[in-house]
C-alpha cells in the first residue's frame, strides 16, 4: 500500500506544479492555445518515456479496442467544464465542487467496480473518510484568506 500511496503523492505534487505552470501560460494565451500546448508536451514526454522504457514494444498494441482511441477526449471535456465552471462561479467555489465531485465519483467507482477494475466494497468507513476530506477541502477553500487565489485545477 505504501508504494501506491507514494505514487499517488508524486502524481498529486506534479499536478499541483503543472497547474501553476499551465496557468502561467494561460496568462498570455487563450485557454485552447494553452491546452493544445500542454497536451502536445504531454504526448511528446509520454512518447519519449515510453520509448526509453519499452523500446519498440511501445508500438505493440494488439489488444486495442476502438474506444481506447477516444479516451483522450475526456481530457478536453475536463478543460471545457472547469473553464466554464470557474468563469461563472469563480475559482474557490468551482474548484471546491470539482474536488468534491472527483472524490465522490471515485468512491462510486470503487464500489461498483465498473470497467473491470477490482471492486472495493463500499463501507461506512470509506464514506466517512471521503466526507472528512470533502469537509477539509471546503474549510481550506472558504476559510477567509487575504487574497483570492487565481489558482486553476
Amino acid at each position: 500500500m505504501v508504494v501506491g500511496l507514494i505514487l499517488a503523492l508524486v502524481a498529486g505534487s506534479l499536478v499541483g506544479l503543472q497547474n501553476i505552470f499551465n496557468s502561467k501560460v494561460n496568462e498570455h494565451t487563450g485557454s485552447w492555445a494553452s491546452t493544445t500546448l500542454v497536451l502536445g508536451m504531454g504526448f511528446l514526454a509520454s512518447l519519449t518515456m515510453g520509448l526509453i522504457v519499452e523500446g519498440g514494444n511501445l508500438f505493440n498494441i494488439q489488444n486495442m479496442q476502438l474506444w481506447y482511441w477516444f479516451s483522450g477526449l475526456i481530457g478536453v471535456g475536463v478543460v471545457t467544464c472547469i473553464l466554464n465552471g470557474i468563469k461563472s462561479l469563480g475559482p474557490t467555489y468551482a474548484i471546491s465542487i470539482v474536488l468534491t465531485s472527483q472524490l465522490s465519483f471515485a468512491l462510486l467507482w470503487d464500489s461498483l467496480g465498473w470497467f473491470g477494475l477490482e471492486q472495493v466494497p463500499f463501507t461506512f468507513q470509506q464514506l466517512l473518510g471521503v466526507l472528512v476530506i470533502a469537509g477539509g477541502i471546503i474549510v481550506y477553500k472558504f476559510g477567509g484568506r487575504t487574497v483570492e487565489t487565481g489558482e486553476q485545477l
Partner: peptide, 21 residues
C-alpha cells in the same frame, strides 16, 4: 497507484499532495 490501492485512496492522496504543494 489505482491498480495498487484503488480509485478512492489514489484520488484522495493525489488531492492532498496537490493542495499541500
Amino acid at each position: 497507484a489505482i491498480h495498487r490501492i484503488g480509485v478512492t485512496l489514489t484520488i484522495s492522496a493525489v488531492l492532498i499532495a496537490q493542495l499541500g504543494l
